[in-house]
Design a protein around this nucleic acid. Sequence first.
DNA 1: CCGCATCCGAGACGATACTG
DNA 2: CAGTATCGTCTCGGATGCGG
Lengths: 123, 123
Amino acid sequence: MPRLDYTSDCRARLAFEVLANRWDSVVVFTLAENGPLRPRALRARIGGISAKVLNDALRRLESNGLITRQVYAEAPPRVDYELTGAGRALLVPMAAMGEWAARYGDEVLAAQDRFAERRSDQC
Amino acid sequence: MPRLDYTSDCRARLAFEVLANRWDSVVVFTLAENGPLRPRALRARIGGISAKVLNDALRRLESNGLITRQVYAEAPPRVDYELTGAGRALLVPMAAMGEWAARYGDEVLAAQDRFAERRSDQC
DNA sequence: CCGCATCCGAGACGATACTG
DNA sequence: CAGTATCGTCTCGGATGCGG
């Protein structure tokens, strides 16, 4: 998050930076599909993510204005997270990314295998 | 690059993972605009990237099948890098990301400022 | 129940110097 | 000129335990 230097003029970089971390896009996607959710529910829907890491992701998304944090004055404490307009709008480019992955995902995996083989051949 | 576990079903994750690192998307973009380039030329066009880091990025992109590496038997050594079909196809989602950034970039930066302020207020 | 503090390992980035 | 090696720093991911 060291605030982008746009010396290299790639407009899309801000968007990628915002979703660069492992779980951020998954959280956005999950919130988009299910509406406002509590951390507990988010963890359950996503699966395979620790509480701390989810919290880290939520903080990042909040700091980038992609989600809002609602706190209810109750006991036990209750919180939920919801997408902002900017967050919801991200679904459009995310869909484009998904289509690319659907079309070229196998190629990528195959290339990774080939590359791993070549490196083990040399040694 | 620890090979995705698709336990969390977000199809777009592969695409994000492929461009998750700082310079990867910039390199793809630069190659798309200028055609095949030698590392030297790439560095010059991009600006602000060290030789090692560019090399790291090129290796990653190659291992993911987004670029190809052409070696010419000359002296002094000559190499150039070119986008594959999968690499060129990435420009479509990248453009979508760019449009999002153009529309919501300011909101993101403003949110970051607000978030930074709140944290410094508390301390 | 939510979130924070701590500790650890893995990678990326960055600068520099060196080999083919 | 291309690429590697090394070193230091930073951040993410992951696990665990504590406090509000």
